Simulated scan of single mutants.
Amino acid sequence: MMLPTHALFGMLLALPVAALAPEHATVALGAGLAGGVLPDLDLYAGHRRRLHYPVGYSVLGGVAAVGAVGAPSPPMIAAAVLFAAAASHSLLDAFGGGLELRPWEATDDRAVYDHVRGRWIAPRRWVRYDGAPEDLLLSVGLAIPVGLHVAPPFDRLVVASLAVAVAYAATRRVLPRLARVLVTEVLPGRVPPALLARLPARYVEDDPGRGA
């Protein structure tokens, strides 16, 4: 699923905290947003493995939630929501597509890495790929309740997330072609080779003659 969907879902998880403890609303919403985004910081370095921990985040979130209920404080509430959002991100990615450059072709059987079992979880493809029409529909569905129940600046972040989601979904099918041209034709000679070598192999191994 695309990043705006995860960000909006993270803020949705924070809404009960914001409703029950309005004094902690800002902390909870900020943590939900951060937790929804956090796992995808591994996008260009071990994507869906280095920072995706479906089990680990869930355990940490449960422990933090118990602590937040027993002794509520901004740091404890932030930790509970952040880990819950990061866990949801890692788990939801298993219901999307694989790691291939064109996930709508369904050629990759890797969705999210399970560090506990030491193996990849296979993609369910309920959402066929990040930026698919159903992914955009999910973003819209999440944005409505979140947008109706948050105050500034989070209402503007909801609008911004939705705008990014629409733009990404509209261009998703041509992005692989653009990315490959950038990596194979534009960047070589303009950036250090060591930096290019760190990019995922799918950007340079994909067949340029295939349709996006």
Rank of each mutant, 00 (worst) to 15 (best):
H89R: 11
A18M: 09
A18G: 08
R202L: 15
A14L: 10
Y57P: 03
G131F: 00
L195D: 13
V59W: 04
P192H: 11
A45P: 00
L13Q: 07
H6F: 12
D207K: 10
H24D: 04
L38G: 06
A86W: 03
L148P: 06
E23C: 00
L15Y: 02
R102G: 03
V63M: 10
L99E: 10
H149I: 00
A197Q: 08
V183Q: 04
G67L: 05
Y53S: 03
R124K: 13
L148T: 01
F83P: 00
L8A: 10
T184K: 01
A28Y: 01
L92D: 01
R156F: 10
V116F: 13
L13T: 04
L43S: 15
A122W: 08
L12V: 01
G30H: 02
L41E: 06
S161W: 02
S90D: 12
L175M: 09
L199V: 00
A7L: 09
P72R: 10
V146F: 13
L162I: 07
A194D: 14
A85R: 00
A170Q: 15
H52Q: 14
S73Q: 14
L157A: 03
P75A: 12
T5N: 14
G62M: 11
A169D: 08
P39G: 03
V69N: 11
H47I: 10
V183I: 03
F95C: 06
P200G: 04
L157W: 01
R125Y: 05
V186G: 06
G211N: 09
A78R: 03
E205V: 12
G32Y: 01
L101Y: 03
G147A: 12
P153R: 12
R48C: 07
V37H: 00
D93G: 05
W126Y: 07
R128K: 15
V159I: 15
V159E: 14
P74T: 12
P176H: 14
A111V: 08
G32M: 03
D207T: 09
L51A: 14
R172H: 06
A71I: 08
L8R: 03
P75R: 10
L137W: 04
R102V: 09
G10C: 07
V174K: 11
G189D: 09
V55T: 11
L51K: 11
T184V: 01
V55F: 07
R198C: 07
G141W: 09
P153W: 11
T184D: 00
F95N: 00
V159N: 08
H89N: 11
L148K: 06
M1W: 02
A170S: 15
S73W: 13
H115G: 13
R172S: 05
E134Y: 12
A45G: 13
A151F: 04
L196E: 04
